[in-house]
């Protein structure tokens, strides 16, 4: 497997430059370190990017505690927990893929990359069902928030409604629905803003997962072609770093949105 014979005719005293080494670096190690520092800075940028959203979350939660208390009932913690487990598992396979690249285990590398990609896909499928359900119910962002059917409301929300307006029990059909939307919508609790925060945070995170799927697909092809070796695996390492931050952000999103009421 060694490539040293290919250069045996070389008359230079210097060792041959590996083909992966860019002209402005002197060693593969330095090139690897540069790429890695670049990725860490990019992750710093990512943290600040999401920080603005987390700030928005804190501001709205601070100003409208009850809105978040009621809004949380609309989210299904079981789906959130499933996705958390899926992502945590994928973080493990992502880290594993780096190890495989370092040890030049080509089959292991291809396999772990594929599993990571499939986990990301699973996450997006669960997200798809969550989103479509919310759109179906009408529990969506801002001005578009409008519940279509009393039967779609989660238990906790119904309890809250009756507690705050016992008169609801005497109403029926359209009249009751109008009263409910009045209590939950922008004239009342303003749940539209809760769902704006929910969709923006999970949506932006979802976009990051999709980007992750894109880069893992690219890594998969490169791994199949055998591009990586023990001195040249920066791409696998950096993508895994990116994937960890995507997971990490979800680790914060899950309790903030699904668990604390």
């Amino acid at each position: 497997m060694s490539t040293s014979t290919a250069h045996s005719h070389d008359t230079h005293a210097l060792p041959p430059r590996p083909k992966e080494l860019a002209m402005h670096f002197d060693t593969l190690h330095n090139q690897y370190q540069a790429g890695k520092l670049g990725m860490w800075l990019f992750l710093g940028q990512e943290v600040l990017f999401f920080a603005a959203l987390f700030t928005a979350y804190a501001v709205y939660r601070g100003n409208h505690t009850e809105m978040f208390h009621v809004g949380q009932y609309f989210l299904d913690w079981r789906l959130g927990a499933t996705n958390t487990i899926v992502l945590l598992f994928s973080s493990m396979t992502a880290a594993w893929s780096v190890r495989c690249a370092q040890l030049e285990q080509r089959r292991g590398l291809v396999l772990t990359i594929a599993i990571t990609w499939l986990c990301a896909l699973t996450f997006m499928v669960v997200k798809y069902f969550e989103y479509t359900h919310k759109i179906h119910v009408g529990s969506v962002w801002g001005d578009s928030f409008h519940i279509h059917n009393m039967a779609d409301l989660p238990r906790g929300v119904v309890d809250w409604l009756y507690k705050h307006n016992p008169g609801l029990a005497q109403m029926q059909g359209e009249e009751q629905l109008a009263a409910v939307n009045d209590m939950l919508g922008k004239n009342g609790l303003g749940l539209g803003s809760f769902f704006a925060v929910y969709f923006c945070m999970t949506g932006l995170h979802g976009i990051h997962v999709l980007v992750g799927m894109g880069v893992y697909a690219w890594l998969f092809v490169r791994a199949l072609k055998g591009h990586f070796n023990r001195r040249y695996y920066g791409a696998v390492d950096n993508v895994a770093l990116y994937w960890h931050i995507v997971d990490l952000i979800w680790i914060f999103l899950f309790p903030l949105l699904y668990l604390i009421g």
Partner: peptide, 29 residues
């Protein structure tokens, strides 16, 4: 810079979908 990136993205979404983040008439700040 990422903070303004996100802010502008939110502003764009607010303008198109009225999500209620920055416009007071939809509950925004």
């Amino acid at each position: 810079t990422p903070v303004i990136g996100l802010t502008l993205a939110l502003a764009m979404v607010e303008h198109m979908f009225h999500i209620g983040i920055f416009l007071p008439q939809y509950g925004g700040d």
